[in-house]
Design a protein around this nucleic acid. Structure first.
Length: 708
DNA sequence: GAGCGAAACGAGGAT
DNA sequence: CGTTTCGCTC
C-alpha cells in the first residue's frame, strides 16, 4: 500500500501541544498515531510509560500496540494502549476505595443491566405507563454519558417521568449489588479527575502525552477524561473523521471534534484527504453519497488509484436470491475469502447469508453478533463465580439460585428479597436467616440452607486457586454438567461444548495473567466477540457496517440496500438520523479496496411475511455513470431449472475432503451417500470419533479438498 | 415448585 | 420466524 510521504508525516507527528488530525477514510490515521508515539519516544526522549493511547475497540488497541512495538523493535510495550473503557476500569481498580467503595465490585454488562431493568419495570406501580426496559436503559445511559442527572423540571412526556422514577431504583440496585455499569467505568473516573485534585495530579504526572483515536466517537465523559488528564494546553493528540461518526446513539458527541480548536487553544490542525485504500471508482461513489449530508465540514477524499471496476449494484428477487448471488459471485470471480467481506445493517441479515455459504461449502466467519460470554451456559457459570468474589451481588444470585433447579422458585425468592429489603442485608445473608427462621416452611429452609452451604464451601476455594480450578469446583458442586445434559435433549452436546470452551478460556487466562478470579471477571465484561477476527482468518467475513469500521477488504458486498435497512426504518423520521445512516453507508463503502458490490431485494420476508421493498435512497445518490447495474445469473435464467445448491456441495464434499464441523471440530470425509437434499457424509474427526451428517443441516465448512 | 404446551410478543447499531 | 412468558396440571 502506498503511504503518505515522509515530509508530510513529519509535519504532523513532530510537534508539541494539542493537535487535531482530520483524517479521511483510508488515509492512514492509525499510522499517524503510531508515528507520533514513536517520535515522542525516539526523538523527544519521552518515557514510553508516560504515554496513554486510547481507542474504542480492543481490536484497534491490539493492532496499534503491535505496530508501535514493531516500529520500536521491542517485545513488550511499556506504553498504555487500550480502550477507553479498559482504562476506566484500570483507574477504578486503583481508586475505588477513594470513592468509599470496596475493590471487589462486579462489572455489569448489557445483559445484566437488562435483567435488572426488566425486574424494576415489572415492579412499577400498576398505573404507570408501560415502558420498555431497553428504552429505560438507553435513556439512563444517555444522561450518564452526558454527565447529567435527571432534573426535577416538569416533564410533558409521561415516559420520561417513568424513566426518571426508574433512575434512583436502578442506581440503588447497582449500589446494593456493589456493581458498576459500562457508563460508570468512564463516569466514575471522570468524576474523580474532576473533583479530586490529588488523583487528577497523580494521573497527569503519569500520562504526559495522551492520544485518542476515532475522536469523533467520543462522548461527553470521554472528552472530560481527555481534557482533565491533558490539562491546560496539554499534550492531547486526537485523530478522527466527522464523516465516520456513526455512534451518536451510544452517546458520541460530534461537537467534541468540531469544537476541538476552541477547547484547546493553539491546537494544530491537519487534514488528510488522500485515500490510499480504494480505487477512484469506489471513492467517487462513496463521496457522492456522503456529500448529500448537510451537517458536515466538507472534505473531499481523493485517490490516485486508477482502474478497477465501477461500483456494482444488483437488484435481486428476494433475500434468498441475494444470498445466492453473493456466494455465486465470490465463486465466479474467484474472490479470495480472507480479503472479502459481506456487510449489512442489522445482525439478522447474516442468517440467510450463512445458509448460502454453508450450502456452497464456502468458509465464512460471522464477526460480532451474539457474544460467546453472553451465552446462557457461560452466563450461569459467571454468576456463580461473581458471587464467590462479591457475595453481596444479589443480581447474579437471582440468576443462578435455582439453576440447576433446587426448589427455590419465585415465591421463595420474593420472600428472600423481602427479608433482604426489610433488614437491609444482602440476598445471600437473607437466605442464611431464612434457613434459621422457623417461621418458614421446612422445604424452603432446607433449600436455602443447602444453597448457602454450597456458596460458602466454594467461596473458601475462590481466594487462592486458579480460575480454572474454581470453575471446575463450581461445575462439580452444582452438578451443572448433569443439569445441561438432562435439561434439553436436543442440543446438549453443543452446550457442553460451550462449557468446555469456557473452561479453556479460564485456563488461558490463568496462564497469561496473574490477576486471579477478581480481575478475570472484571475484564470479561469488556471482551467483545469481534476480537477473534483478523484479516488472516481464511474465511469470508460477515459483519455489520458498524463492526467493519477500521477494517479494509479487497472485495466488499454491501447487502440490503433498501429503505428500512439502510437507512434503517427507525432512523427514517429524522434528518439527523438519516445523515448518520448516510455516514454509515459511507463507512461501509470505503472499506473496499478494489471491488464494491451493492445489492437489494424487490421483496423480502420481514416479520414472517413477504413485503415489497424500495431501493435505498443512497443508491439514487450515486450518479448513474458511476454505478453499474449487474444482473444475477438467476434473474437471467429465470424460469429455467436452476441447478440445486446441494448438488454443488455434493461435488465439493467428496471423500478425503477436510472439513470443520461447528461442534466437533476438524475431520475428514470418509464416504458420502444419498444425493441432493438427502446427501449424507460420514466424517472422522481428528479426535477419533466418527459420525454421519445430513449435509443440508450440519454446520460444515470445507477446509480443503474442493473439486479441482 | 416443576414441567409442559400454548400463546404472546418482539428485531438497531455495541464498548 | 424464533424466543420468551403464561397458564395449566401434577
Amino acid at each position: 500500500m502506498p503511504t503518505m510521504n515522509e515530509a508530510q508525516m513529519k509535519a504532523i507527528t513532530a510537534g508539541d501541544g494539542p493537535a487535531l488530525v482530520l483524517a479521511g477514510a483510508g488515509s492512514g490515521k492509525t499510522r499517524v498515531i503510531v508515528e507520533r508515539i514513536v517520535w515522542l519516544i525516539e526523538e523527544r526522549g519521552v518515557d514510553p510509560r508516560n504515554i496513554l493511547a486510547l481507542t474504542f475497540t480492543n481490536r484497534a488497541a491490539a493492532e496499534m500496540k503491535s505496530r508501535i512495538a514493531a516500529r520500536l523493535g521491542v517485545e513488550r510495550l511499556a506504553t498504555w494502549v487500550g480502550t477507553y473503557h479498559s482504562f476506566g476500569l484500570f483507574v477504578l481498580r486503583r481508586e475505588m476505595e477513594r470513592l468509599g467503595r470496596p475493590k471487589n465490585f462486579t462489572v455489569f454488562d448489557d445483559g445484566d443491566q437488562l435483567s435488572l431493568m426488566k425486574r424494576l419495570v415489572k415492579g412499577l406501580s400498576a398505573g404507570s405507563t408501560k415502558v420498555s426496559p431497553r428504552e429505560a436503559l438507553s435513556w439512563i445511559s444517555r444522561l450518564k454519558q452526558e454527565t447529567e442527572e435527571p432534573g426535577d423540571e416538569e416533564s410533558l412526556n409521561e415516559e420520561d417521568a417513568v424513566f426518571r422514577e426508574l433512575w434512583p431504583k436502578y442506581h440503588h440496585a447497582l449500589e446494593k449489588a456493589r456493581a458498576v455499569d459500562f457508563d460508570d467505568l468512564l463516569g466514575l473516573p471522570a468524576k474523580l479527575f474532576g473533583e479530586d485534585d490529588e488523583v487528577r495530579e497523580k494521573y497527569r504526572r503519569r500520562y504526559t502525552h495522551i492520544l485518542v483515536d476515532e475522536y469523533q466517537d467520543t462522548n461527553r465523559v470521554q472528552y472530560l477524561i481527555a481534557k482533565e488528564l491533558s490539562g491546560e494546553g496539554g499534550n492531547l493528540f486526537v485523530v478522527g473523521d466527522e464523516d465516520q461518526s456513526i455512534y451518536s446513539w451510544r452517546g458520541a458527541d460530534i461537537t467534541n471534534i468540531l469544537d476541538f480548536e476552541k477547547d484547546f487553544p493553539g491546537a494544530a490542525t491537519f487534514r488528510l484527504e488522500q485515500n490510499y485504500r480504494s480505487t477512484k471508482a469506489i471513492l467517487a461513489a462513496a463521496n457522492a453519497v456522503v456529500a448529500c449530508n448537510v451537517e458536515r465540514l466538507g472534505k473531499t477524499l481523493w485517490s490516485d488509484q486508477e482502474g478497477g471496476d465501477r461500483v456494482g449494484y444488483c437488484l435481486v428477487a428476494d433475500g434468498g436470491a441475494e444470498a445466492r448471488w453473493v456466494v455465486d459471485t465470490i465463486a465466479k470471480r474467484g474472490f479470495e475469502p480472507r480479503s472479502t467481506a459481506i456487510l449489512y445493517r442489522t445482525n439478522g441479515q447474516a442468517r440467510a447469508m450463512e445458509e448460502a455459504f454453508r450450502r456452497k461449502g464456502l468458509a465464512y466467519i460471522v464477526v460480532g453478533g451474539i457474544k460467546f460470554f453472553a451465552r446462557k451456559e457461560i452466563k450461569d457459570l459467571l454468576c456463580y463465580l461473581r458471587i464467590l468474589i462479591n457475595p453481596v451481588d444479589g443480581e447474579s444470585l437471582r440468576r443462578i439460585v435455582n439453576i440447576p433447579p433446587r426448589g427455590i422458585g419465585g415465591t421463595t425468592l420474593e420472600e428472600v428479597n423481602s427479608i433482604s429489603e426489610r433488614r437491609g442485608i444482602p440476598m445471600l445473608e437473607a437466605m442464611r436467616e431464612m434457613a434459621e427462621d422457623l417461621a418458614h416452611s421446612a422445604r424452603a429452609r432446607n433449600a436455602a440452607a443447602a444453597f448457602v452451604a454450597l456458596i460458602d464451601t466454594l467461596a473458601l476455594k475462590a481466594g487462592s486457586d486458579s480460575v480454572e480450578s474454581i470453575l471446575e469446583a463450581v461445575l462439580e458442586a452444582t452438578g451443572y454438567r448433569d443439569y445441561v445434559q438432562h435439561s434439553d435433549e436436543k442440543d446438549f452436546r453443543a452446550r457442553l461444548e460451550v462449557v468446555d470452551e469456557f473452561i479453556a478460556s479460564c485456563a488461558e487466562f490463568d496462564e497469561r495473567d496473574e490477576g486471579g478470579l477478581e480481575i478475570f471477571l472484571q475484564d470479561l465484561a469488556l471482551v467483545s466477540d469481534t476480537e477473534g477476527y483478523s484479516n488472516e482468518t481464511p474465511a469470508v467475513a460477515l459483519m455489520t457496517c458498524h463492526s467493519a469500521k477500521g477494517l479494509e477488504f479487497d472485495n466488499v458486498f454491501l447487502i440490503g440496500m433498501e429503505e428500512g435497512y439502510l437507512p434503517h426504518g427507525i432512523a427514517a423520521e429524522s434528518d439527523e438520523d438519516v445523515e448518520e445512516e448516510r455516514r454509515l453507508c459511507y463507512v461501509a463503502m470505503t472499506r473496499a479496496r478494489k471491488t464494491l458490490l451493492l445489492s437489494g431485494a424487490e421483496t423480502r420476508v420481514v416479520f414472517g411475511e413477504g413485503r415489497d421493498r424500495t431501493p435505498s435512497r443512497f443508491i439514487d445518490e450515486i450518479p448513474e455513470g458511476q454505478l453499474e447495474k449487474v444482473a444475477s445469473e438467476e434473474a437471467a435464467t429465470r424460469g429455467r431449472a436452476r441447478p440445486s445448491a446441494p448438488r454443488a456441495a455434493e461435488g465439493e464434499l467428496r471423500m478425503g475432503a477436510k472439513v470443520r464441523h461447528g461442534t466437533f471440530g476438524k475431520g475428514t470425509v470418509m464416504y458420502t451417500s444419498g444425493s441432493g437434499k438427502k446427501l449424507k457424509v460420514r466424517i472422522r474427526f481428528d479426535s477419533g470419533m466418527s459420525r454421519q451428517f445430513m449435509v443440508s443441516a450440519a454446520p460444515l465448512e470445507i477446509l480443503e479438498g474442493k473439486r479441482k
